[in-house]
Design a protein around this nucleic acid. Structure first.
Length: 752
DNA sequence: CTAGGATCATCAATT
DNA sequence: ATGATCCTAG
């Protein structure tokens, strides 16, 4: 009896195929983690591979930890020398060792999204870019896509051509790179890009890692992007022992640059690839699986496969529609309480939603009902103000080159150092080509600093003092001292606007101290030295999901994206409404591929459920402070009715919806209400469906056109929605504001 | 020059 | 509803 007997045939095939490229197409819940861990065990035990030569890449740190644990259980030894990590952590480890070859200091700092935005603001000022026209976010995402596609500023220039907007972005890209370099900082994308650059320019480094990683495994391969693919192919080039596991139906990170072609074209990229399909699902009941299959079937660009299961049919999928989002939250809270009364435990339940904002309603209900819960995602712990402030102190002490960090804390807590003074220092630093902190140390060289000088001096003295302490104290003690010496807690009290705010923030700081202590302890266990930079690096790469603990008794709330790779006995998918999921952006863009990505997300959600799935929607909800009226999500209509339990009240309505859609729509009081599509002249023009619809009816105007109304004057058509026997037209009038009207009554005329 | 208050825009998903 | 920018008083 060996550990491999419990595997099914295709699983065994995958485990025993150890040499050469291997593509495992693993449907949801088909036991891919089992395959990966058994494969590692097989490599070590049966093939005598040194664990040291194995690299496994997972999507989250949490998954990495679990994989190590499970290998440990199988093999009993050696798992600690397997390199299991995420792409980003792997790159950091490599870069800490070799990035000096690319002209960076190995003590580089990692910028998160907030830092990037702050820096971009700066960049736009320097490059004379109007952030009203080119938003920082937009520029940053353009740069990020460029990096993800391995497009350098030089190549970007070649592609930009004469396009004015592209030229602006190019300018920002150049300046951004320059600033990043002088701050000795890398953003998330850089971690990957620089590693690829390192491998491409330093053959000896590449050779070293190729030798080291003779067997490579990659999980969630469908969500890798172009850089990651490049990285992997460089590493695997020599031995070609590359095993990737993925499911094209679960690719949900296209917006982040994930390239589905990486999986669809794997066989072309790596000739002689063995392909194994895992189609037996062990996770979900028959009904849940059938619903998932029915939904995903509506997508075109996918590898054909159908999941099947030997599990029993199980309960039907509960579909509930409510008048308001409050009712929805009430129902779910009550339903969970009911489950608990019947002997269930909190951590069997998960609530999944499309946007983080939806968590608030549930949070309120749960607090009121005394239900323990944990919200994953939202504002990252390390993105909170108080945490970022304190980390900025640590960064300043650790790496004086990080201007952003220094500027963040120079007046926090308030020291009477204002913007003007900071700008003077900045200018002087720029002129002399040195860092901000360096400039601070040579104050006397800066003109026009008179009143501020004393304050700046004492700030520098404070930091220098801390630097001295950092050499002898532990990180925890250092942070404690920073908090005391700066009077940070007192300033929190003074700044707090809300009752409890200071208290909440203080709790977060305690949590930070705990995390530092845990890090120091962990280092001790591993026999490594706990360093400030080590801690800062760990901090930069943790995702909220990493803190999820299955043993803890709480209901988990998170976005559908975060739920990837997890499973729960009882799952609620909330807010299943057109406009929320799929989102307005997707609907109004008319982009088929985007819609398919949303559908995949829905598929991911459904397949998280083991025993019971509840899908729910509300007719009315507040979004961004205004009331929206939404219809049931189109994805729900793709689930066959015989798999659904619609509840007594709802049954009638569901039938009506099916048979007499128009009548139902017209009699629905909410139908006439406002559906606010925001004005999006460019994307709306692409709205092919809407365009076709309005044309078909013979309206002589369409979205984006200027029209004239008898009473309201001229305006722009923002939206044309089909409903009942008429079209509902939304017009933004120049003088009368936004109005919604029926086309047959409004008598709108196209104006030119 | 700095701090505090008022006004204004923005608002998917994540390492 | 929340965070950034503008404006004014000290």
């Amino acid at each position: 009896m060996s550990i491999y007997d419990s595997l099914n045939e295709p699983q065994k095939e995958a485990v025993f195929h150890t040499d050469g490229p291997l593509l495992i197409l693993a449907g949801a819940g088909s036991g891919k983690t089992r395959v990966l861990t058994h494969r590692i065990a097989y490599l070590i035990e049966e093939k005598g591979i040194n664990p040291w030569n194995i690299l496994a890449i997972t999507f989250t740190n949490k998954a990495a930890g679990e994989m190590r644990e499970r290998v440990d259980q199988l093999v009993g030894f050696g798992s600690e020398s397997i390199w299991v990590s995420t792409f980003h952590s792997m790159c950091v480890r490599i870069l800490r060792r070799y990035i000096d070859r690319l002209g960076y200091d190995t003590a580089f700092t990692i910028y998160d999204t907030d830092d990037q935005k702050t820096l971009m603001k700066e960049v736009c000022k320097l490059a004379d870019i109007d952030t009203k026209v080119y938003k920082e976010r937009v520029i940053l995402s353009a740069i990020s896509s460029a990096k993800n596609e391995l497009v350098s500023p030089e190549e970007f220039e070649l592609n930009a051509g004469g396009d004015y907007g592209r030229q602006k972005i190019l300018k920002a890209y150049r300046e951004y790179e320059k600033q990043m370099r002088s701050n000795n900082a890398l953003d998330f994308d850089d971690l990957l890009v620089k590693t690829v650059q390192l491998f491409q320019t330093q053959p000896d480094v590449l050779e070293y890692y190729q030798e080291r990683f003779r067997y490579i495994m990659i999980d969630e391969y469908q969500d890798t992007n172009t850089v990651q693919f490049k990285l992997v192919s460089l590493l695997a080039q020599k031995y070609k022992n590359l095993c990737v596991v993925g499911d094209d139906d679960q690719s949900i990170y296209k917006f982040r640059g994930a390239n589905i072609k990486n999986i669809l074209n794997f066989e072309q990229e790596f000739p002689d690839t063995k392909v194994v399909k895992l189609e037996q699902n062990y996770r979900s009941t028959g009904n849940i699986l059938n619903a998932a299959n029915a939904v995903i079937r509506n997508n075109c660009g996918r590898k054909e496969k159908t999941l099947w299961t030997e599990n029993e049919e199980g309960a039907k999928i509960a579909l509930r529609q409510f008048d308001t989002a409050y009712d929805e939250a009430d129902f779910i809270a009550e339903d969970i309480e009911k489950n608990i009364r019947e002997g269930g435990s909190y951590n069997d339940n998960a609530i999944l939603y499309r946007t983080n904002a939806q968590s608030r309603l549930f949070e309120e209900r749960f607090v009121a009902a005394n239900i323990p819960y944990k919200i994953v995602g939202g504002i990252n712990f390390y993105a909170r103000r108080e945490i970022k402030d304190l980390l900025a102190y640590l960064k300043t002490i650790d790496n004086g080159q990080d201007d952003l960090a220094v500027r963040r804390i120079i007046n926090v807590p308030k020291r009477g150092i204002g913007l003007t003074t900071i700008n003077r220092v900045q200018e002087s630093a720029l002129e002399r080509g040195i860092g901000f902190y360096e400039a601070l140390k040579g104050l006397d060289l800066i003109p026009n600093i008179t009143r501020g000088a004393a304050k700046l001096d004492s700030f520098v003295a404070l930091i220098e003092y801390f630097k001295g302490r950092a050499r002898t104290e532990s990180i925890s003690d250092l942070l404690q001292e920073i908090i005391e010496k700066t009077g940070y807690m007192e300033s929190l009290e003074a700044e707090a606007k809300r009752e409890d705010e200071a208290h909440d923030r203080a709790e977060n700081i305690d949590e930070l101290l705990n995390k530092i202590a845990a890090y120091e302890e962990n280092c001790e266990d591993m026999g490594e030295k706990a360093t400030l930079s080590g801690f800062l690096e760990e901090v930069a790469l943790v995702a909220d999901i990493d803190s999820l603990d299955e043993e803890q008794e709480y209901v988990v709330l998170m976005t559908l994206h975060s739920a990837k790779g997890l499973e729960f006995p009882n799952v609620y998918m909330a807010g299943m409404e057109d406009g929320l999921f799929p989102s307005y952006m997707t609907i109004s863009s008319g982009d088929l591929e985007e819609m398919e990505e949303e559908r995949r997300l829905c598929y991911v959600g459904i397949t998280r459920a083991e025993e019971k799935l509840t899908v729910s929607c509300a007719r009315m909800r507040m979004v961004h402070g205004e009331t929206q009226y939404n219809r049931m999500s189109r994805f729900l209509k793709e689930i066959p009715v015989n798999l659904l339990d619609t509840g007594e009240v709802f049954v009638k309505k569901a039938e009506e919806t099916e048979k007499e859609k128009t009548v139902f729509a017209a009699s629905n009081p909410y139908f006439h209400a406002k559906k606010s599509f925001k004005a999006q002249p460019f994307s709306v023009m692409k709205g092919a469906e809407q365009f076709a619809a309005s044309k078909a009816k013979g309206l002589d105007y369409t979205v984006g056109d200027r029209v004239r109304h008898l009473k309201f004057g001229e305006g722009i058509v923002e939206n044309i929605a089909e409903g009942g026997r008429d079209y509902e037209v939304t017009v933004e009038f120049d003088t009368a504001g936004r109005k919604k009207m029926f086309a047959s009554f409004a008598k709108l005329v196209k104006a030119e």
